[in-house]
């Protein structure tokens, strides 16, 4: 464990907690894409299959349970909670996210490290996570009024994988110098997708004005 990775995990955890608090406090999920949340449930379920098979550390197991639990909880709130579900804007959240799941799965079947069930799903989860934010970014472009909590949520979610990139550089130079193209490139693409959002988010923060993404 290194500082970059711990900072990345904490940033990721903070983003999810922030979203959960926003939904619970405001009893509203306006501006949040259910599709991105569903994609993240698929990402965590396909990545954390080894949760009950391989024990790395208490931290590792605890965080996996927290990520799985909170992401499913958020989807439950947006789909089934009697008040929150009324605030979900279905016809704005239009991204056909299953167009992301299938190509990622096929790609994982073609490009992977070992052809085993666990490895294929782990690789699939990396590919899917790199594009999982797209429905949320599309929804933000349509939203005329992005509230601060939603903006901060997306910012932290994008920042966490950026910190992981530093973690991989650090581990490459300090550990076994092992090259890992699949997580590295997936993480790079994932972070690159946020650059547009990062630019407008930081600019709105500097100019103290409302966050607005160009359509």
């Amino acid at each position: 464990m290194n500082a970059f990775r711990l900072a990345g995990d904490m940033t990721h955890l903070l983003s999810i907690i922030l979203l959960l608090l926003k939904i619970r406090a405001t009893k509203s999920c306006a501006g949040i894409s259910l599709k991105t949340q569903e994609l993240y449930v698929i990402v965590f379920m396909s990545r954390y299959l080894d949760l009950f098979r391989t024990y790395y550390s208490l931290y590792n197991s605890l965080m996996k349970i927290i990520f799985l639990g909170t992401s499913m909880c958020i989807v439950w709130y947006m789909r089934s909670h009697k008040v929150v579900r009324q605030t979900y804007n279905n016809d704005e959240d239009t991204f056909r996210h299953f167009f992301l799941v299938l190509p990622c799965f096929v790609l994982a079947l073609l490009v992977h490290r070992n052809f085993t069930f666990i490895e294929i799903l782990w690789t699939f989860s990396l590919y899917l996570e790199s594009v999982a934010i797209l429905p949320q970014l599309v929804l933000l472009q349509k939203s005329s009024n992005i509230d601060n909590l939603t903006g901060t949520y997306v910012f932290l979610l994008g920042a966490y994988r950026g910190l992981y990139l530093f973690n991989w550089v650090y581990r490459f130079f300090t550990e076994n110098h092992r090259v890992r193209w699949i997580p590295w490139l997936s993480g790079l693409i994932q972070t690159a997708i946020y650059t547009d959002f990062f630019y407008y988010y930081i600019r709105s923060w500097k100019n103290r004005e409302k966050l607005k993404l160009p359509a």
Binding site: D50, Y56, S57, W122, R171, P183
Partner: peptide, 10 residues
């Protein structure tokens, strides 16, 4: 299974 170091990441 040879343990894959990156798998201890989240």
């Amino acid at each position: 299974i040879q343990s894959d170091p990156i798998k201890d990441e989240l």
